[in-house]
Design a protein around this nucleic acid. Structure first.
Lengths: 214, 214
DNA sequence: ACAAAAGTGTTATTTGTACACCCATGC
DNA sequence: GCATGGGTGTACAAATAACACTTTTGT
């Protein structure tokens, strides 16, 4: 029956991708003891809320980013992670189109995951590192489609996969597989003003995405 | 900075298997408000401990069961799950050899997962149901090897897989695959006094198991 | 005409699936 | 000698991997 003071938070690792780089959304926190410092977006799980509800609230703070559904990425419970109190983090990843890079919110910014500010609050540097590993370990590659812009070419998608999973893929085999997977649909639009044959744009198959819920 | 009273617990779903049945370890709780009722083993995450440490403590309560490493299986945070206070559960599965069925601890018993006591505390019935689904969804079947006794025949292992994943497998193909996986080793022991050709006993390849850490 | 990326098909290899009979043992 | 489960090999299908050239477009 002992109930020592403990706080549970959801801490979100929002990820997007552009030009062979992953970006993570950071926030300048404005409450003690982290006032003015960079960290991941986080929200306390209130006593009347579930974790799922809290995640919905967290995502709602960023309506313009069209975040994916949350994907559980780990628990962080080191008693020393917060300097003042006991805070256990349930971390979740959210995926977002790079369009989000241009949508700015007050006190927020996207940072390249390999060039983070020198100090982040608590263990957020660690959480981001682990989240990247987690992402690379995903055997279901579907979430990566959420890192693509609204419309994208097959080469762009292939480059994204190659970057994140640190592999090189055969163009023909890659195309056969992704097209036959049903996750993407061709459009009738093609690149314009490129000094080579114009590539067809594809889009996420939203029907399939809805069914599969990542 | 609000710190409403919240408790974090690890709640363990210890599983074993015998004769086409899964068993889960239940405990008669002896503290209010659950005095005398069946539920999963659980341990509060103390303010000085991490979740991992708490899991080690939980496993240490059952030294005779040779539990596997814990496998994260879900968070349960419904504010109403505990009648008196806010308790969020981090649930983990532990796998155990059926030898454990004979090792009795005070106030504990193994129950067939499909014939649980009519009422379990909190949402434990739900957690067990979800854990079973989680187990079935594991694409890495290796944890199931921890449900086998010290030595087992290939037919026993096949039957276990068939039961849990609710499939039927071809004997020859199953054998080829499991043997070539390197997860098990044949012994020179064979069944005795059976009214048919004696089967070879196999054991878990502990070297491989250690490397793979489930 | 040339540079740059798009787009495409075939073959070989590997992996998975289907399938049926003989073997050893206790009764 | 028969009932019981143990143990094995081969042929086919499917999935994956390797591989090179032609097309389109801007400069």
């Amino acid at each position: 029956m002992s109930s020592s003071a403990m706080q549970l938070t959801t801490e979100g690792v929002c990820i997007t991708y552009l030009n062979k780089q992953l970006f993570v959304l950071l926030q300048i926190h404005n409450q003690k003891p982290f006032k003015g410092k960079w960290g991941l977006p986080m929200l306390e799980v209130k006593s009347i809320h579930t974790i799922e509800k809290t995640l919905r609230l967290l995502a709602k703070s960023y309506p313009s980013l069209s975040l994916s559904a949350p994907v559980f990425a780990g628990l962080y419970s080191d008693p020393a992670r917060h300097p003042k109190s006991r805070v256990v983090a349930a971390t979740y990843m959210f995926f977002s189109s790079p369009d989000a890079l241009e949508k700015s919110q007050p006190d927020h910014a996207w940072h390249p995951i390999d060039k983070l500010p020198s100090s982040l609050i608590m263990d957020h540097k660690q959480i981001i590192k682990k989240s990247k590993q987690f992402l690379q370990s995903l055997t279901n590659h579907a979430p990566l489609l959420y890192l693509m812009p609204e419309r994208f070419t097959l080469s762009e998608l292939q480059l994204c996969m190659e970057t994140l999973f640190d592999v090189t893929l055969d163009k023909r085999n890659f195309r056969k597989k992704i097209i036959s997977s049903g996750w993407i649909n061709p459009t009738r639009q093609r690149q314009q003003n490129v000094a080579h044959k114009a590539a067809t744009y594809y889009t996420l198959n939203k029907k399939k995405a809805k069914e599969s819920s990542i």
